[in-house]
Design a protein around this nucleic acid. Structure first.
Lengths: 131, 131
DNA sequence: TTTGTGAAACGAAAGTTTTCGTATTTACTC
DNA sequence: GAGTAAATACGAAAACTTTCGTTTCACAAA
């Protein structure tokens, strides 16, 4: 029997939808569809299908409100951010978060301001841990 | 006319192959295939197809060596790391690298040592920029 | 030159993701 | 209850990714 590949990661379109739901908190098919960019031009039924799939994969739950379904993430955006970073770090950075940050801070496009913010974050975390 | 979707990002299997090529520097179909995990069990022709696709997408070039083709990345691993981070940052972190790092350093699984390394990297970059 | 071995070329099957059409259901209004 | 507007349910087409089989080609050994 072939093992079902359960990736735990969102596909491109799934992520697009989850991003809207994270922003909305929760919402109907119509809510999400209306929130997509003007030029996205996705059929209503397509959007409904994506949400159905997200529910099958247990990334969202739904409740009924009158005749509509209201969808709500079961996984927080922060948790998914962590999961994605872990995946990227594993696949492309030898599972060494420091080397990921190294690549990031060596990016010329990164502003001085962003660098300062990053250091502040790291410092705060180090202080909290030790003190 | 429909715009060809040119993603610039590697698919799962493409990344798997590029990773081996980055490690090898360059290599033949056989070289890459032999480098995959024991239990990968991919047919030779499948590997050849992936490399052919990577060449079509211009992620690698090939030269002939006797009767075999030797494949070589056109894009460095570091450049692709940067590209991936930019993509992730855009899709999941509001295009704000600092918030990506914030998520990373807030991950409880991150060791004190890794944190120290990260701060050192940031400090070094800040010093170099100003002095 | 024939023959054997391993590689390349190519197309297409199999698997997954994305999109949509059709049919049905629901709630509301008269 | 019949009409209607909007939502859901479901299947399947379309698009993309992954895998492989068959045929052709290149080189070397007899």
């Amino acid at each position: 029997m072939r093992q079902k590949k359960k990736s735990e990661l969102l596909t491109e379109v799934e992520l697009e939808f989850m991003t809207e739901l994270w922003d909305l908190g929760e919402g109907t098919v119509r809510d999400v569809l209306d929130k997509l960019p003007e030029d996205r031009n996705l059929a209503y039924t397509s959007a409904a299908t994506i949400l159905r799939i997200l529910e099958q994969k247990e990334f969202v739950t739904s409740r009924k409100d009158g005749k509509r379904h209201v969808f709500k993430p079961t996984l927080g955006k922060d948790a998914y951010q962590t999961r994605s970073l872990k995946d990227l770090s594993m696949k492309l950075f030898d599972d060494t978060p420091a080397s990921l940050v190294a690549r990031l801070v060596n990016d010329d496009a990164l502003t001085e301001e962003a660098l300062g913010q990053i250091r502040a974050l790291v410092d705060r975390r180090l202080k909290n841990d030790s003190g």
